[in-house]
Computed example of a mutant assay.
Amino acid sequence: MPSISVGMAMSLLIVGNLIAVFSDALIKTLGEDTAVFQFVFFRQLTAVLILLPFCYGVSKKSFSDGLKWHALRAHIWLLGAIFMVFAINAMPLATANAIFYAAPLMMLPLALVFFKEQLTRYSIAAGVLGFIGVLVIIRPTEIDWAAIAALVVALTIASNNLLIRKLPKHQTVAQTLLLTNLAGIPASLGLALWEGREWDWAPLITAAGSSSFILIYAAICVIAYRSAESNKIASAEYSGLLGAVGVGLVWFGETPDIAMILGTAMIVLPLIWLARIEKKKKAAANTEL
C-alpha cells in the first residue's frame, strides 16, 4: 500500500467519519424490540458477502497471516457493535456520537502504554480537557447504562484503531476487513442463538446498509492508521460530530442541548489546537533542514 501524508490521512478520516454517521442513523431506525444479537450477526454476515468479491483472486496463503490479531480485533469489534446498538437506540444520535468520539482521547494513553508513543504536555492537556468534556456530556450525576455503553464503544474503537498496526501490511484493505468479520461470525452467531429470539429477517436490509457505510469507514481507518502515528491524525475523527448533529436534527428531530454543545467543544477544540501545534512543529523541523 503506497504511503500517504498526514494531511491526506486526516482528510480521509474526515470523509470516513461523515459516512459512518449514516451507519449509526440506520441503527437508530430499528425498533426497541429488535433482537440485538441477531442484528449484529446480520451486520457481520452482510459485511462478509459485500467483501468477498473484492478478495477474489487473492492468494489463499496470505489469508492465514496475522490471524490472531484479526481474531482479537474481531471480538473487540463485536463487543463494540453490541454496545453501539444499545447506546444509539437509548440516546440522541449526536450525544451518543460525542461519547463515541472519546476514542481518540483513549488512544493517547493506550498508544503510550502499548506502542511507547511519546505524549507531550500539549497532548496530555488536550486529553484532560477532552475527558472533562465527556463528563459534561454524560453528566456523572445522571449517568446510566446508555452512557456506559457508549464509553465501551469508544474504548473498542480506540483499541481496534491501534491494533491495525499489528496487522500484516501486505494484506489488502478488503482482506483485512473480510478476515476481521469472518473471525467474529462464530461468536456473533452463538450469541444470536443464545438470545433465544425467533429469527426475524426484516432487519437484514438495514444491517446491510449499516455494514456498507461502516465498511467504508473501517477501510479508511486501516489506510489512515497504517500511514501515520495515531496521535497526529486522531483529531480528524471528530469531524463526524458535525454530521451526527446534522443527521440527528434532520432525520430524528433531535436538538442538541447546551451541555452537549459545551462538552463537544471541550473535546474538539483542544484536539484542533493539538493538531495545529503538531503542524507548526513539523514546519519548523522542515525549515531547520
Results as ranks from 00 to 15, higher is better:
1 M>C: 10
6 V>G: 03
7 G>A: 08
12 L>Q: 01
13 L>D: 06
15 V>I: 15
20 A>W: 09
22 F>M: 09
25 A>L: 08
30 L>C: 06
35 A>D: 11
38 Q>Y: 06
39 F>S: 03
45 L>C: 08
49 L>E: 03
49 L>I: 11
72 L>P: 02
74 A>M: 01
79 L>Y: 07
82 I>S: 10
84 M>H: 09
84 M>P: 05
85 V>P: 10
88 I>Y: 06
89 N>P: 04
90 A>V: 05
98 A>W: 01
108 L>T: 13
109 P>Y: 04
117 E>Y: 07
119 L>S: 11
121 R>C: 12
127 G>F: 07
132 I>G: 06
133 G>K: 01
136 V>S: 07
143 I>L: 14
147 A>W: 09
149 A>R: 02
151 L>G: 03
152 V>W: 00
157 I>S: 00
157 I>A: 07
162 L>N: 02
165 R>P: 03
170 H>L: 10
173 V>T: 15
175 Q>L: 14
177 L>R: 01
177 L>W: 05
180 T>K: 10
188 S>I: 02
188 S>E: 05
193 L>I: 12
193 L>K: 03
196 G>H: 05
196 G>L: 09
198 E>T: 11
199 W>L: 13
204 L>Q: 08
206 T>C: 11
210 S>D: 02
216 I>F: 12
217 Y>A: 15
218 A>S: 13
222 V>L: 09
226 R>D: 10
226 R>P: 07
226 R>H: 11
230 S>M: 14
233 I>M: 06
235 S>G: 12
240 G>F: 06
245 V>M: 15
259 A>H: 13
267 I>P: 00
272 I>V: 15
278 E>P: 01
279 K>L: 15
280 K>Q: 15
280 K>M: 14
285 A>Y: 05
